[in-house]
């Protein structure tokens, strides 16, 4: 009954819609929230949406992981491995940036007791 979900067009459409929603949720959070950690969460959500688009649209239903193993001796019907490699790299980079950001936010909070970007006034004349 739900076979129509397996057609690549519908499958990609659902993922695209979902990830774009995620992207705009992240963008909303980035613009509307003032708390530093919420901003980092929003940035992470936007990043995840981009990863999801890459992975989902580069893969079609029925494709297997690009690994040769028992019974799988040729590269047929396998997903394109490049997007997965790219996404892994991008995730690592994203984690590094977020970790740096959070540690800086913690230090800033310890020094000033502030948590919001709206309260940042040290650099104004």
């Amino acid at each position: 009954m739900l076979e129509f979900l397996d057609s690549p067009r519908v499958f990609h459409g659902i993922y695209l819609l979902g990830s774009l929603m995620l992207f705009f949720i992240g963008l909303y959070g980035l613009l509307a929230k003032r708390h530093l950690l919420k901003i980092f969460v929003s940035i992470e959500i936007m990043e995840l949406a981009v990863y999801l688009i890459l992975i989902a649209l580069a893969t079609s239903p029925g494709e297997t992981a690009p690994i040769l193993s028992d019974g799988l001796l040729t590269f047929t019907g396998m997903a394109d491995p490049i997007p997965q490699a790219l996404t892994l790299t991008a995730i690592v980079i994203g984690v590094a940036v977020t970790a740096l950001g959070t540690s800086m936010a913690i230090q800033y909070h310890r020094l000033t007791g502030k948590v919001g970007v709206g309260e940042m006034t040290e650099l104004k004349d």
Binding site: L36, I39, G101, M104, L111, V117, M120
Partner: peptide, 13 residues
């Protein structure tokens, strides 16, 4: 210090 951290956070975001 406060100023450097604030600049760093803004730049990072």
């Amino acid at each position: 210090d406060k100023q450097a951290l604030e600049a760093g956070l803004k730049y990072l975001i």
